[in-house]
Simulated assay, not measured.
Amino acid sequence: MGNICARLKAKPAPPHSTSAKKRSASRRERKLDDAAIREQAIAAAILFKQHQQQQQNFDRSTSLRYPNGVSKKSSGSSNTLPRSSSSRARSLTDPLLQPHQLLNQDVKVDDLETNRIVLVHGGGFGAWCWYKSIALLEESGYKVAAIDLTGSGVSSFDTNSITSLSQYVKPLTDFLEKLPEGEKVILVGHDFGGACISYAMEMFPLKISKAVFIAAAMLTNGQSTLDIISQQAGSDDLMQQSQIFIYANGNDLPPTSFDLNKSLLKDLLFNQSPSKDVALASVSMRSVPFAPVLEKLSLSDLKYGSVRRFYIQTLEDNAIPISLQENMINANPPEKVFRLKGADHSPFFSKPQALHKLLVEISRIL
């Protein structure tokens, strides 16, 4: 796989007047501290993996849990597509909403058009990254599914063997295809997951009530994720500096995937996130398949355009800067735009409560 990340050099112990025995003990303590952090992160990842494998009713690459006492919402099938949303978005400047500020509070979760939310991770992430959002949403009465896309999370598929977007998003499209007739979900996509949910919106518009893009690639017809990324290309672009391309088919052929340099990972993705979540990500993230990033999407007004779209901006984002998010919003306006202050590229870590409140509010918009 080549050099996946730059190795961090251990800092030498500063000279002082203590004995060699005390210096040796100090070094041992630091090593034990580092080992403890790694063990905690790995243990968290293993527990999450074990929980996913216990689910019996859905595809093995899907983590789905139901809260006790939540009844299944019945919904009649519709012969017409949902209304199209083409007006320019309205921006909320204060996303840190208090419970009394949320819309339609008197509407019970079971009475919504759908109380099912499907979370789709970004490139390199997996279903594990949503663990805070899953818990918060379930406590609020929602049914939540977090998808591991092909070659991500607990999926055993080799990332370097993924050759198309349809192959990459197959766990998501399989999930939607198995939904009962007339049942809908709210799709939530982060980062490259935006392109993935866009692909699903074109395939299953009648099964998607709303689509939420969180610091995500929101493409127009005929556009690829690489086209979006290229808009911010520059010598000082942290994303470009972080990418380590992998050529599994040989150096004379296009890259098959890319990793992110772990020495730059915190600054790129987690500059506002807790250190424990950064540790979890550092042992859980996987390579990003390159072919799906190159693929141009075919999106129609009749299908993709009929699904109500919402965008959540992350204002402290170093991976997809706010200027790039604005470009996507202006080129392809959603119904409404929300702004998360103090959120880095991973708001499910850095601002989980504020993100949760926005997802709840979006679910209640009539």
Rank of each mutant, 00 (worst) to 15 (best):
S91L: 11
S275K: 06
I322F: 05
P14T: 11
A233F: 10
E326N: 15
S17P: 08
H345T: 04
L137I: 03
T314K: 01
L137H: 07
G153L: 00
S91E: 09
A25M: 10
T220Q: 14
D174M: 01
E181S: 13
I214G: 07
N249Y: 09
F48A: 12
T93A: 07
P347C: 05
S235M: 02
L265S: 06
L294Q: 13
V283A: 05
V70L: 11
P292V: 06
P333N: 05
S257I: 04
T159A: 12
H345W: 02
V307H: 06
K336S: 10
E181D: 13
S78W: 00
V70E: 04
K21R: 12
Q231W: 09
G153A: 01
Y311V: 11
Y247F: 15
K266M: 00
Y304S: 12
K296D: 09
A35R: 08
Y304V: 03
M285N: 09
L187P: 13
S133W: 00
N115C: 09
S84K: 10
K22D: 14
D33G: 11
P180L: 01
S71R: 07
I365S: 07
I46V: 15
E295Y: 07
S346I: 04
N271P: 12
G193L: 00
L265Y: 13
A6P: 11
M218Q: 13
H100W: 08
S287P: 12
S152M: 11
P14N: 08
L165R: 00
G305R: 03
A41C: 07
K108L: 11
H190E: 02
A281E: 04
R7K: 12
L366T: 13
Q105D: 06
K262W: 02
R364N: 08
H100I: 07
V337F: 02
D259E: 11
L297C: 08
K108N: 13
N327Q: 12
A36W: 08
G124K: 00
P352G: 11
L265R: 02
I37F: 05
L355C: 07
R27T: 14
G126M: 01
D236G: 06
P205S: 04
S363C: 06
W130L: 02
V293T: 10
R286P: 11
R23F: 07
L260K: 00
T114L: 03
V169Q: 04
T114F: 05
A248D: 15
D110E: 15
M285I: 15
L264N: 09
